[in-house]
């Protein structure tokens, strides 16, 4: 009986303590800057074009093959009369978020720091009714950083 009394006192002490739950959709937990949601592409604000040159490094390194990359000649390269130093640039880019396993390898292999893991809540709240809606195309991948929504954290 003493053991049961001790159990009941334990629960009573918990009764007086503050609940730990958060009312999620209204109140978000602050997420750390290193948080990894899904990979997105970064936007070179200085030249106003993506960092990504479409070099296929991430596509080859991806363990689950969730990426599709197509490159093209950069119309804004200096040789074409533009102000960009990138000879090639990304043409089309798809990432299937339904396949991605968020291993961070694409970020590590990128030579141009053009891809990063989303560290905002928008990157987590992606529920859709159709799986095909999880396949993100280039504008969707770029929009987050283009609007300046990302928190700064760049992995070594």
């Amino acid at each position: 009986m003493r053991g049961i009394a001790k159990s009941m006192l334990t629960t009573l002490s918990a009764f007086t303590r503050r609940p730990v739950t958060r009312e999620y959709p209204e109140r978000h937990r602050p997420i750390p800057e290193r948080d990894r949601a899904f990979p997105i592409l970064l936007w070179d604000q200085g030249i106003d074009e993506p960092f990504c040159t479409g070099c296929h490094a991430c596509e080859r390194a991806c363990p689950v093959e969730c990426m599709t990359v197509l490159m093209k000649d950069n119309p804004r390269h200096t040789s074409q009369g533009g102000n960009s130093s990138r000879r090639k640039i990304i043409d089309k880019f798809w990432i299937d978020y339904g396949r991605c396993m968020r291993c961070n390898i694409c970020v590590e292999v990128c030579n141009f720091d053009a891809i990063a893991m989303n560290n905002t809540w928008q990157g987590h709240e992606l529920s859709v009714y159709d799986r095909s809606d999880l396949v993100m195309d280039l504008p969707q991948l770029l929009s987050q950083h283009r609007q300046g929504n990302l928190k700064e954290w760049v992995a070594e």
Binding site: L12, A14, F15, R17, R18, P19, T21, E23
Partner: peptide, 11 residues
């Protein structure tokens, strides 16, 4: 019960 378990219960 929720308070005993440090939850909020129905809200």
């Amino acid at each position: 019960l929720a308070r005993f378990q440090r939850r909020l219960g129905p809200t």
